[in-house]
Design a protein around this nucleic acid. Structure first.
Length: 423
RNA sequence: GUGAGCGUAGCUCAGUCGGUAGAGCACUGGAUUGUGGUUCCAGUGGUCGCGGGUUCAAGCCCCGUCGCUCACCCCA
């Protein structure tokens, strides 16, 4: 089968997260978890694959994701399964299936993990990428919308990301959206010739998408198009205003953008997106919105919900890589077999004490010290024949070059004092 | 799915008109038989992505192919 000795390459569009990069990932994940906890969220771990219809039902049969970007396969039982292209559909499925709507009230869930979309890779776009998302089920009040957006912005703030743009919009509800859609379609039809080919097709299929088309001509037409904001019904309008008032109260300023339209079919009312000019063409770091009918679509009781997802690769590319991996506190060097046994014993004891300990696996003193240096160790602990004979270790401070002779029995106490300043 | 650019040492890259495969960093050894990180000296390291073609001769030109990157599309 496999060609012996041939290098196997990773699948197109996937990435290895290497040791140099993992500290940043861990920091982001830890910071996000802390922030979620501060907002009383609990983690939910959803499967990486689902029955295909979980996604086609939630995201919309005609969306690009479902039509051409899903990794779908048939399992041994002949069932169609799909690697999750996003998290919301699975969380909703799990919410309904596990009856998390009982006891009644708000349910706050977050998740993080890999997602899969068979797109052509590009800067900020991969076939396996990672999302970190949150879903709030239950409340319909604008306070839920504002809190969710505040949570999202708090995560960025805690990661010290400042230069981000938050745009918000209201897409209306089943009561007022059809009228707007109609009005927009009529306007666009009157300007049909000036639109790009793609948008001409969208006039009937999904006229809202024309609003965020990047083609220059379409942008001009979109600017003059009837605005969603003016077409909102009284309730939607009040909901949107209240959301913005509450956001202002926590110091979050989002730019109202009537042209913001989200790609997934399930959104209603509040929609938002966070982007960065530092990202290139794929400039959205996070996006989300309200989806009030999805739980019902999945067979649950009518339950309004709102959520967002953050793209981790994009977010991390904004952070830069100033996360130098931490070296061990101690690096043991043995110069003879007897010393090696002693090193095993001492290193074991110190690891139990909680010290970060590494050791060499052989070589001369010179080469082993070089290894300690390369590992960025703080202290090198050298034990050879001379030291064995005297029952002492030679402890070298790598940065200064200063050396100390410490009796084996005294080593832990000496280190506590030297490294931690404890008596 | 469409388009463009790029594939040379572990890494970053140079390679003129088609004429012997290069540099810096890294790595190994020595100066120093038990002392790293600085310095000096020496050395190892190549399927020039892969396959074909043109040519006396191809890293360089031509065709194909694979990969990477960026953009369109779409989205996080």
């Amino acid at each position: 089968m496999a060609d012996k000795g041939q290098i196997v390459q990773r699948v197109k569009g996937v990435k290895d997260i290497l040791p140099v990069d993992s500290p940043v990932w861990q920091w982001v994940e830890d910071t996000a978890r802390e922030t979620f906890e501060g907002f009383s969220y609990s983690e939910i771990r959803i499967p990486v694959f689902e029955r295909t219809d979980v996604f086609s039902r939630a995201i919309g049969e005609t969306s690009d994701i479902v039509e051409k970007e899903m990794y779908t396969f048939t399992d041994r039982g002949g069932e169609s399964l799909t690697l999750r292209p996003e998290g919301t559909a699975s969380v909703v499925r799990a919410y309904v299936e596990n009856k998390l709507y009982n006891p009644p009230g708000a349910k706050k869930l977050y998740y993080m993990g890999p997602m899969f979309r068979a797109e052509r890779p590009q800067a900020g776009r991969y076939r396996q990428f990672h999302q970190l998302g949150a879903e709030l089920f239950g409340p319909e009040n604008p306070s839920a919308d504002a809190e969710t957006i505040h949570l999202l912005m708090s995560i960025f703030k805690n990661l010290h990301l400042e230069d981000l743009t938050l745009r918000i919009n209201s897409l209306g509800c089943p009561q007022c959206r059809p009228a707007f859609r109609q009005k927009l379609a009529e306007y666009l039809d009157s300007r049909r010739e000036a639109l790009c080919d793609n948008c001409q097709r969208r006039i009937d299929k999904n006229p809202l998408r024309v609003l965020d088309c990047k083609a220059h001509g379409c942008g001009v037409i979109a600017d003059e198009a009837p605005s969603v904001t003016e077409s909102l019904c009284g309730e939607c309008s009040a909901h949107f205003d209240r959301t913005r008032t509450l956001l202002a109260a926590v110091g979050v300023d989002g730019k109202v953008d009537p042209k913001l339209v989200r790609g997934l079919d399930y959104y209603s009312r509040t929609a938002f997106e966070v982007s960065s000019t530092a990202l290139g063409a794929q400039d959205a770091v996070a996006g989300g919105g309200r989806y009030n009918s999805l739980v019902e679509q999945f067979g649950g009781p009518p339950t309004p919900a709102i959520g967002f997802a953050i793209g981790l690769e994009r977010l991390i590319s904004l952070l830069g890589n100033d996360g130098a991996p931490l070296g061990p506190e101690l690096f043991f060097i043995a110069l003879c077999p007897e010393a090696e046994e002693k090193v095993f014993q001492l290193a074991g004891a110190l690891r139990e004490e909680g010290y970060m300990v590494d050791m060499s696996y052989g070589g001369g003193l010179k080469s082993q010290l070089k290894q300690a240096d390369r590992a960025s160790a703080e202290l090198a602990v050298i034990i050879g024949e001379e030291e064995m004979a005297r029952s002492v270790a030679l402890v070298k401070e790598m940065k200064s070059g200063e050396q100390f002779t410490v009796a084996f029995d005294e080593l832990i106490k000496w280190l506590d004092k030297h490294l931690l300043g404890e008596e």
